[in-house]
Design a protein around this nucleic acid. Structure first.
Length: 762
DNA sequence: AAAAAAG
């Protein structure tokens, strides 16, 4: 049913566009449909004997503001054509004014959408008087910006904005993207099917939004050269990037120096021994369908792979890939001993026990292909098209296990390719489970993927959908904040893979509109987060709706025993994987802590974000996020916010504004802490220090992706130093604490403004 | 505190 809402583009990309244009589409539909439908009706009425019809009729179509009956801004023709306003009673007048207000809002919104900065945040007083405040702000801006003109970096940001506001150009090319955020119809047009994935346009489009996160995730695993990074807008480039990435692989090993040699030193342990040791080990026979599946679907190399290439960790410290003396959190988690005194000091940042895991190192997967792991050729081709020619360690480890039907727990640090690690084999398994069967109308989903935020669910879908499409499977997003009609419609037609957030998923289950009884695979992304208070219960309830013995996959960059509640109830003999050599020393992120005076905080923040690259600022509360974004905006630094107080359209749009580079500064709550991928964020500023080390890790993981350098700056006051020190210990991050004052060179340096260079150019 | 459902 949403199909007819889709813009009908001949372009293959059309299957991707609707999401951008979902809101826009319906908006335009209303208008276009309204006008078309309105004309005859109006004509009829005019002909019906009104004397004014003759002169007025010619003008109807052209008169600005004429509307069809169906339009909410509709006014009877008589009123406008000739009836004096005096005839309107107060109520009618009110209605008319309201209608005008709506229309104006809609039109100004449409006009200003691409660059307007106000829209993106929650209601602010100045918007009640948009024109005057707009004018004021517009007038102000050149002055402010002018003051900054000496700094060329502002020109780029300021100029288009002034142009846009002044020129009132309705839409730029970015309009579609701006309005992205509605849902799209998952179902490809018939003409998009099949060949669609092979077409360049499709690829381009997917890459822009879907491929990129994945590729970057993958690259994030290893330090690729800078050259491989920029060329991500096109499919061919991606392929190049992937080739490059493959060549790069050895470098990663060099870099994570320990990995190979460690592997060699580490005593090999038999598979059985390893299993016996695992805390979650259970009798595998509990899984009714375990055996047959295993034999059937295990890839030819899978068994050997697991036995030969994936090295088990034997204990907390033995064979541990840490290069420093501390126990490494990167092996699932620190033992309690790693932070003994901290454990109960702060109830909100508990260090959970580590999980025993098999560790897979990059060198071990060298030369292995996705095909070797057991994925079908269509999927492999799609992956290659997305820039993933060869599997990364976490993928190489988990894919065979997933294909074998095992429950899997996997930890790979931020940006290590987790989405493909569960997504690709999930698609393969769903495909196998339907082999030979016809895809029935109204079939219920075979797999579900849950994510903690809507943005993440969208992002996951962008990655998985092309893979699913390549084998003729359908995905749909089920998340809140948007009307459910379209989602329900998709479900009615039949969907194979559901990707969503817990709230709406459970809602639709309870409404009887989503049936998970045939759901054989359930994935929890950011699984540890999903096990936190407030999330677990719905997640548990949802999982209970899945088929008996359904396969469970739990992934996170900070996976630890926090997931025990779910593991105990839902997982059977899970395979547990992690990636060797993933510690902070191998990270490309530079961490710093600025100890500041509270009164300087606002100005220091403005100074920090007053820079060239993309900056992500984390605030603890929604209100503060809004406040900061406005503060930056007022200082002439275009900024938007992202938090749960915004409606979904604004959330999606604001995130896209950062992605597209329309703004360089995004101020977000922790809604953006996990999973969200935006290219090129080179500075993460924590306006408020996080309370939990995991939050720190996830927030900082928004930068330093794709092997690029990234910086994380945390602002704290003196009183917070101790807590911060402890948190960093738990996170196993080393960061210098530096006292900073406003206008310190230190801040210039962190922002990337080197005073001397500016002096030289001046 | 934030996140996750809402016609």
């Amino acid at each position: 049913m949403p199909k007819n809402k889709k813009p009908r583009g001949g372009r293959p990309a059309a299957n991707f566009e609707p999401r951008y244009g979902a809101n826009k589409t319906s908006f335009h539909d209303r208008h276009a449909g309204g006008r078309d439908a309105g004309r005859p009706e109006r004509g009829a009425r005019a002909d019906a004997g009104d004397r004014r019809s003759a002169p007025a009729a010619g003008g109807y179509d052209r008169r600005p503001g004429s509307r069809s009956v169906g339009h909410r801004g509709y006014r009877p023709a008589e009123a406008e054509a000739g009836a004096p306003k005096q005839r309107w009673n107060a109520q009618e007048r009110a209605g008319r004014d309201e209608a005008r207000g709506i229309r104006n809002r809609a039109e100004s919104g449409r006009r200003e959408t691409p660059h307007h900065r106000g829209d993106e945040r929650t209601e602010r007083p100045r918007f009640s008087d948009r024109s005057s405040t707009g004018a004021r702000r517009f007038d102000d801006r050149p002055t402010r910006a002018g003051g900054r003109d000496e700094r060329p970096r502002f020109d780029r940001d300021d100029r288009p904005r002034r142009d846009d506001r002044g020129g009132q150009r309705p839409t730029g090319p970015g309009t579609y993207r701006d309005e992205r955020g509605g849902q799209r119809d998952e179902r490809p047009r018939r003409d998009d099917r099949g060949a669609g994935t092979q077409r360049q346009g499709f690829r381009d489009n997917d890459h822009r939004d879907g491929g990129r996160p994945v590729r970057d995730d993958r690259r994030g695993q290893r330090p690729t050269g800078p050259g491989s990074y920029r060329d991500e807008r096109g499919g061919r480039d991606d392929r190049g990037g992937q080739r490059f990435g493959r060549d790069e692989r050895p470098r990663r090993d060099d870099r994570g120096s320990g990995a190979p040699s460690r592997g060699a030193e580490r005593p090999e342990r038999s598979y059985d021994a390893d299993r016996a040791r695992r805390a979650f080990d259970r009798d595998r026979t509990q899984r009714s369908f375990e055996g047959g599946r295993d034999e059937r679907s295990r890839p030819s190399t899978g068994g050997a792979y697991r036995a030969d290439r994936v090295r088990p960790l034997t204990s907390d410290t033995r064979g541990r890939p840490s290069r420093n003396e501390r126990p490494s959190r990167n092996d699932w988690n620190a033992t309690p001993a790693a932070a003994p005194s901290k454990k109960f000091e702060q109830g909100d940042d508990v260090v959970h026990e580590r999980l025993e895991a098999k560790s897979v190192a990059a060198v071990e997967v060298d030369g292995v292909t996705f095909g070797d792991l057991g994925l079908g050729s269509n999927i492999v081709d799609t992956l290659v098209g997305m820039g993933a020619a060869t599997p990364f360690p976490i993928q190489a480890a988990s894919i065979p296990a997933v294909l074998a039907g095992r429950d899997v727990l996997a930890r790979g640090r931020t940006g290590s390719g987790k989405t493909i690690a569960f997504g690709a084999p999930l698609v393969e398994r769903v495909l196998q489970s339907q082999a030979g069967k016809r895809r029935e109308f109204g079939r219920s989903p075979r797999a579900i993927i849950l994510a903690p935020t809507r943005e993440l669910a969208l992002q996951i879908d962008r990655t998985i959908q092309p893979i699913a499409r390549s084998v003729g499977l359908f995905t749909t997003q089920i998340y809140g904040g948007v009307p459910q009609g379209r989602q329900v419609g998709a479900l009615k037609k039949g969907v194979d893979i559901v990707i969503g957030t817990p709230g709406r998923v459970e809602d639709l289950i309870n409404q009887g509109k989503l049936d998970l009884s045939d759901c054989r695979i359930a994935v929890l992304d950011e699984a540890d987060h999903m096990c936190e208070l407030g999330f677990v219960e719905p997640v548990q309830r949802i999982l209970r709706h899945t088929a008996d013995g359904s396969q469970k996959l739990l992934f996170s960059a900070t996976l630890d025993r926090e997931v025990a509640a779910l593991v105990d109830e839902f997982l059977v003999d899970p395979a547990v994987y992690e990636v060797a050599g993933e510690d902070q020393d191998s990270s490309t992120i530079e961490h710093r802590v600025l100890v500041i005076e509270h009164r300087d905080k606002a100005d220091i923040l403005t100074s920090l974000v007053d820079r060239d690259g993309k900056t992500l600022v984390f605030a603890r509360t929604r209100a503060y996020a809004d406040m900061l974004a406005e503060q930056f905006d007022d200082a002439g630094i275009p900024a938007v916010s992202l938090h749960g107080d915004l409606n979904q359209a604004k959330r999606t749009r604001n995130l896209e504004r950062l992605t597209s580079g329309r703004v360089n500064v995004l101020v977000a709550t922790d809604v953006a802490a996990r999973g969200i991928h935006v290219d090129d964020i080179d500075l993460v500023v924590q306006a408020d220090a996080p309370d939990e080390y995991k939050t720190y890790l996830h927030r900082s993981g928004r930068t330093g992706r794709a092997g690029r350098s990234g910086r994380v700056v945390t602002l704290i006051t003196r009183q917070r130093q101790r807590r911060m020190t402890e948190l960093l210990e738990r996170a196993e991050i080393e960061a210098p604490f530096e006292n900073a004052r406003l206008n310190d060179d230190l801040i210039e340096e962190i922002a990337g403004r080197v005073p001397t260079a500016a002096d030289l150019t001046a």
